[in-house]
Amino acid sequence: MAEPASATPPPAVVDVRDVRIAYGRRRKRVDIVKGVSFSIAPGETVGLVGESGSGKTTIGRGLLGLAPVVGGTITFRGQDITSLPRSRRRRLARDIQVVFQDPYSSLNPSMTIEDILAEPLHVAGMSEGRARVRELLRQVGLPDDTGARHPHEFSGGQRQRIAIARALALRPSLIICDEPTSALDLTTQAKVLDLLRDIQRDTGAAYLFISHDLGVVREISDRIAVLHDGEIVELGDSEQVSLRPAHPYTQRLQLATPVPNPDVQARRRRKRRELLEAGA
């Protein structure tokens, strides 16, 4: 009896191969991202973690066509988008959306929430209007009357929910979450992470989740890529990378994650200091 054929895995939503991003020209060129490769499958979250200046946000900007990719390829839903002209990038923008770190600065304070959520629909020529706005508000756990109010009337966590709703408006295949919880307190962080998980389960969207905090990345990611000085030094399953890191730099990030036990925290500080002194 023949064995059943194994299911073919779905193609990646985005496939990044040996991508290099640099600013400047010739002798004055500064290499920010140095040959990075990873892929994200439908419904998968890949966490991109590293300290400030490691190139995390630059990679996100490269996917959006906002940073100069000088080498390698970015394939989105089977199409090479590495060097797409701006006119075609605008059409692609429907399928790649961003949730930023500071929801207040990313929301126009003079507009009502309904106008903020309806704006991408109008720009895309979609006529769903108020019905879609109400659907988006319910999707992120906010009441229908939210639409009549302005951003300053909400807490940081509520504003981030509004920013997530706006990112969902055009039903994207990929959402880039750029430090979306770093401006929030721990309780609100947990609620926003739960919300993102629920949305992914319902929509099947892929996430690139960018953060400096390995503990936060572990909570939401299926796989984690650790970025150091523009290069991925470790890439693997979330639990393995965060709990049993192989690279000394990842070990440093793990030790920087706070724990409630003061004695354990003191030992972690000493170990991290030893790694820093050893040049890891």
Rank of each mutant, 00 (worst) to 15 (best):
Q254W: 07
G60D: 06
L121H: 04
T187P: 07
K271Q: 15
V49P: 02
P172A: 06
G53E: 10
S54N: 06
D18Q: 15
G157L: 04
A163R: 02
D145A: 11
I21N: 03
A67Y: 02
H150Q: 13
R90Y: 06
T203E: 03
D263G: 10
P258E: 04
T146N: 08
S155K: 11
S105K: 02
A93E: 13
F100I: 00
A131D: 15
L66E: 04
R171G: 11
V14P: 03
M1C: 13
G60V: 02
V30Y: 03
R132D: 01
S52Q: 09
A124E: 04
T8L: 14
P103G: 02
P151H: 00
R270T: 14
L84Y: 09
I176W: 04
A280E: 15
I116Y: 01
Y104S: 00
R267L: 14
G125N: 12
G141D: 01
M1K: 13
L117P: 02
R244P: 01
P85E: 05
A266F: 07
A5W: 06
Q240I: 12
Y249K: 07
E277S: 12
P103E: 03
H247N: 13
L92N: 08
S110W: 12
A266H: 11
D229F: 07
L186E: 12
R94N: 01
G72V: 07
